[in-house]
Design a protein around this nucleic acid. Structure first.
Length: 426
RNA sequence: GGCGGGUUGCCCGAGCGGCCAAUGGGAGGGGACUGUAAAUCCCCCGGCUCUGCCUUCGAAGGUUCAAAUCCUUCACCCGCCA
């Protein structure tokens, strides 16, 4: 099985999922037997986003290779705030907010792991379980005593903050808590490997030291590079904010579109990082993409796989069909009502009561929430980016008429090239 | 606790009594070109009942015909001293 564990590491490297690790030979040796490993997710929002998916799917890869994954939800650490990668102190969330987020993230994380696997069922843990019973005195005596402030100060997450803006005692303590998590998981589940983003290296190695000192145990660390885009912009962020996994926060339609619109320069890398396709399959997509980029086969494969994984194959089919209908070459008016209804269901929408006068295009677009204000909607009209049923309109006062409603029910608003919204006559 | 510096639109950052909805850069948006891609070029980028009006420059008061700009108090940040 040592060759298998070597293959796992090699695959991670090929996918660009390997930043650094503790002694690689020892790690491969350890992984030759089923190994328990964990990743922590702090509740900093009500949902995980596509950036979290990188490490979460890495955990899944380990489970598929026969190892036992633990997803740790940071009910405790989420109350403290990780200084890693942050240039300034963050404001604390209230405990009830964090409790609510923990629950949502626990459910979300569970979707990507197998809890029924016979020999290596996944585990979800919450670090509040072992930190909350601990008194401050116990914590300082039993845990704190093993930490040298000199070493803590040397961590990049702390030293960079000392230079810019300072750091509170609260966030300074974060690495101790994370180390304690590793120690507890080592004790409870014989967890001997922690995965994390490359910014977690300092926190993870602090845990290794703690395990060595307290339990004379040996454990390993593996970090994953933070995903970078070709143009240097931040991955997973759009004008509207982050791309969330929660369908209430980012609609499956928008989710699919996000991946479909991936920069050509990034699409193969993203496939390697996110897709569970084999190396051969991805290399085949790379070939077809370079031969005919306009067909966007690789983009489509990426969007399909991730939308199916995060939402469902059924939802994926729906949003893809919607996009095909709305962006297709044919006339919108030629779509039958069922197709149109299904397609428009995926879009931001507003309604108009049939007895009442129809508002202007500007008012309608603003009502769908596609733009932030009526001024923004007016600007779109003035600049020539306003469409009704795929036909350009002009004049700030333009209002659709009854006959513009397809099948007597729907009007399709478009802002620019690809931002669509629906108006329904009720 | 003392002294000094700072807090400006999504972000960075100019402005230091009227010419300020506020220079510049970035992000973002629209158009052209394309492939619902990138690069490039042009344009836009507080809000509204839009040739005008309203609300913004940490918060609250005040001076003035007029304040992002001056004064007072408060909050937070940074530095030096105790």
């Amino acid at each position: 099985m040592a060759t298998q564990s070597k293959a796992l590491i090699d695959d991670l490297k090929w996918r660009g999922l390997f930043s650094q690790s503790t002694d690689e030979g020892a790690l491969i040796q350890a992984l030759s037997k089923p190994t328990t490993l964990y990743i922590g997710f702090d509740p900093t929002a009500p949902s995980l986003h596509v950036g979290n998916l990188v490490v979460l799917l890495a955990l899944r890869r380990f489970q598929l290779a026969g190892h036992i994954p633990i997803a740790l939800v940071g009910g405790a650490t989420g109350l403290i705030g990780d200084p890693s990668g942050k240039s300034e102190e963050r404001s604390l969330n209230t405990t009830d907010v964090v409790v609510a987020w923990v629950e949502r993230i626990r459910v979300q994380v569970s979707k990507y792991l197998d809890f029924n696997a016979k020999d290596n069922a996944a585990i979800v843990a919450n670090n509040l379980d072992w930190t909350s019973p601990l008194s401050a005195i116990e914590f300082l005596r039993d845990v704190g005593k093993h930490f040298s402030v000199n070493q803590m100060l040397a961590k990049d997450s702390v030293s960079s903050r000392l230079e810019a803006g300072g750091i509170s005692y609260t966030e300074f303590s974060y690495q101790v808590l994370q180390s304690f998590d590793f120690l507890e998981l080592f004790r409870r589940h014989n967890c001997t490997l922690q995965l994390g983003g490359s910014d977690q290296w300092g926190n993870i190695t602090a845990g290794l030291d703690l395990i060595r000192r307290v339990e004379s145990g040996s454990a390993h660390a593996l970090t994953i590079p933070l995903l970078a885009k070709a143009d240097g912009s931040k991955f997973g962020k759009t004008a509207g904010g982050a791309i969330w996994l929660d369908p209430e926060m980012t609609s499956p339609y928008a989710f699919f579109q996000y991946w479909l619109n991936t920069d050509d320069k990034d699409v193969i890398n993203f496939l390697k990082v996110f897709s569970f396709k084999s190396r051969e399959e991805i290399e085949a997509l790379e070939k077809s993409h370079s031969e005919n980029p306009g067909a966007r086969e690789a983009h489509r494969a990426l969007a399909r796989e991730l939308t199916s994984l995060v939402h469902s194959a059924q939802i994926c089919d729906r949003v893809e069909a919607a996009a095909r209908a709305l962006f297709g070459q044919g006339e919108l008016s030629e779509l039958d009502e069922a197709t149109l209804t299904a397609a428009l269901a995926e879009l931001p929408r507003t309604t108009v009561k049939s007895g009442e006068p129809i508002p202007t295009w500007v008012d309608l677009l603003a009502a769908t929430g596609v733009v932030d204000s009526k001024s923004a909607a007016r600007r779109i009209v003035k600049e020539g980016g306003a469409y009704l049923n795929n036909a350009k309109i002009s004049g700030e006062d333009f209002a659709p008429s009854k006959s513009d409603f397809l099948c007597g029910k729907y009007a399709v608003l478009r802002k620019g090239k690809r931002d669509l919204a629906a108006v329904e006559l009720v």
